[in-house]
Computed example of a mutant assay.
Amino acid sequence: MNKTLLAAALAVVAVAPFAAKADENNQLNNFFVAGNLGQSNYRVGGLSDKTDGYYNLRFGWRWNGIVGAEVGYADLGKGKNVADFTSTWAKARAAQVGVTAKYNFYNNWYVTGHGGYLRSRTTAGVTVGDMSVSQKSWNNGWYAGAGVGYDVTQNVSLALNYDNYHVKYGRDTSQPQDHANIAAYSASVEYRF
């Protein structure tokens, strides 16, 4: 994990001066903040309720308004299974760092894509009758997504998005870890400044 994070940080530091020089005369609004709100879907077997609320908040910068870097935080909701006297559940959250791209293809219409590294914190629990126990784990993973949207003004955009988060659960690295793909369908607002 440390080697991957170090390599990503060095790549950003190495490219940043060249990107800044290339962008000196560009008048586009390159810094952005984007918020997504929608529904997550846990793609894991054995769950009776796989959907929950989802939100994501991202900050970033695009060179020439097209390609750039982003950081963000996502709450992926909760997946659960409820039986007679027993219920199990998992709730995942993720900090993310990656690349982003936006391309206007017709008038104010555009497509977006993004992806990168995530650090997830998953809390899983079991409740039997009145007794409950839970455990947290922190793991590495990845995310990727795409969207289509419309520039309402020069600074504000609205979009519909699909994102996929690949998270793991487990604290003991010597044992196999549980993997899960969590899909997210959302609407988003982006503000550029």
Rank of each mutant, 00 (worst) to 15 (best):
D172A: 02
G115M: 10
V82G: 04
R171T: 07
N107R: 06
G60E: 02
G113W: 05
A159K: 09
D84C: 07
Y54F: 05
S120M: 06
V156I: 10
V167I: 01
G145R: 00
R121D: 14
L158Y: 15
V152N: 06
R62F: 03
F85N: 12
I66M: 09
L57R: 06
P176M: 07
G79T: 11
V133P: 15
K91N: 04
D75M: 08
G115F: 09
G68R: 01
G141Q: 12
G68M: 01
S137I: 00
G65V: 09
T100P: 14
G65L: 03
T88Y: 02
E70V: 06
N64Q: 02
T153Q: 05
A90L: 04
V152Q: 09
T88H: 02
W138Y: 12
L76F: 09
G115Y: 14
A144C: 12
V156C: 11
M131W: 08
L76R: 08
T100S: 12
A92P: 13
L118T: 13
S137N: 10
V156D: 10
T153A: 00
I66N: 12
Y54I: 03
M131I: 03
R58V: 00
A69V: 09
S120C: 03
Y162K: 11
G65D: 12
R93M: 05
S132R: 08
G129E: 07
K78T: 15
V133S: 12
V111T: 04
A95F: 14
V82R: 01
N161Y: 15
K91Q: 06
N56V: 02
A124R: 01
Q135M: 10
D130M: 10
V128T: 15
N161T: 15
V126D: 06
N64Y: 00
A94I: 08
N161A: 12
N108H: 13
D151I: 11
P176R: 04
A144N: 14
G98N: 00
Y143S: 05
L76S: 05
A69D: 15
L118H: 11
T122S: 11
A94M: 13
Y73W: 10
A146T: 07
V99E: 06
N161I: 10
T127Y: 02
T88R: 01
G60V: 04
G141C: 09
G129L: 00
V71S: 07
F85E: 04
A101N: 03
W109R: 05
Y55L: 00
R93C: 02
V126M: 00
K168V: 03
A124E: 04
N107K: 11
Y117I: 02
V67K: 08
N161P: 14
W63N: 12
Y73E: 03
P176V: 03
R93L: 04
R62P: 05
G116Q: 03
N64E: 03
V167W: 01
A95K: 10
V99Q: 04
F85S: 09
N155L: 15
G141T: 13
N161K: 11
T100G: 13
N161G: 08
V126I: 02
A74H: 02
A146P: 12
S174R: 05
W142E: 14
V133R: 13
S134Y: 13
G113N: 08
K78D: 09
W138V: 15
G98C: 00
S132Y: 12
L57V: 13
F85W: 14
V156R: 09
R171I: 02
V99W: 09
N81Q: 14
V67I: 09
D130L: 11
L158D: 12
P176C: 00
